[in-house]
């Protein structure tokens, strides 16, 4: 019986009852349209949020002159992040790529994309905000309490700890993905 088991299991597997779930060509076209619409809406939401941030900082520039430098830098950071999101999102898989390469290559590419996104988060998401944030923090010292720079140090430290925490968590997740990539290359 032991020797026959795998073949018997093959029969059990292949003869199992499965529910028919086949979509017609019309249904496929409808679903493909919905899929494209979902992607378009998601992109629109991201751009709308960025436009709102740019408008808010633009208002600061116009209304509060001391915040001009910080607001300008934050607008630049927002535009840079939108550009990064756009280019990284554009690298998404084209439909035919699912069949062109082997499963191992595809899986590796997926993991590498996620790893790079997480590993570089400080470069494209955290670091661009730092100059604007520092410029904002400098304003109270320059205008309300001239010369009292030490007062702003705890806030800077708090921001640094927060940013470091986010970057570390993402680095840890990136290392976990790297281990999975390494496993794929192990015979």
């Amino acid at each position: 019986m032991e020797n026959k088991l795998p073949d018997d299991l093959k029969n059990v597997w292949q003869n199992q009852t499965v529910e028919a779930n086949q979509m017609s060509l019309d249904e496929l076209r409808r679903k493909a349209g919905k899929f494209q619409k979902r992607i378009r809406n998601r992109n629109l939401r991201e751009y709308a949020a960025s436009a709102f941030a740019v408008a808010a900082f633009g208002y600061y520039i116009w209304r509060f002159p001391p915040l001009r430098l910080g607001s300008g830098l934050m607008i630049a950071a927002t535009l840079y992040m939108v550009y990064q999101l756009h280019t990284r999102g554009a690298a998404k898989t084209v439909p035919a790529a699912l069949g062109m390469g082997t499963c191992r290559d595809f899986h590796r590419r997926e993991l590498e994309q996620q790893r790079d996104l997480l590993r570089d988060i400080w470069k494209w998401y955290l670091l661009p905000c730092v100059p604007g944030l520092l410029a904002f923090l400098a304003v109270p010292v320059m205008y309300l309490a001239p010369g009292k720079w030490l007062g702003v140090v705890p806030l800077i430290l708090l921001c640094a700890v927060f940013f470091y925490g986010i970057a570390s968590l993402n680095q840890r997740a990136a290392r976990r993905l790297q281990r999975q990539i390494d496993e794929l290359d192990t015979p």
Partner: peptide, 16 residues
């Protein structure tokens, strides 16, 4: 998932 697979297949055949 089954529908996603069918959609992916149909879309992929454009480049087969």
């Amino acid at each position: 998932l089954s529908q996603d697979i069918q959609l992916a297949l149909w879309r992929s055949f454009e480049g087969f």
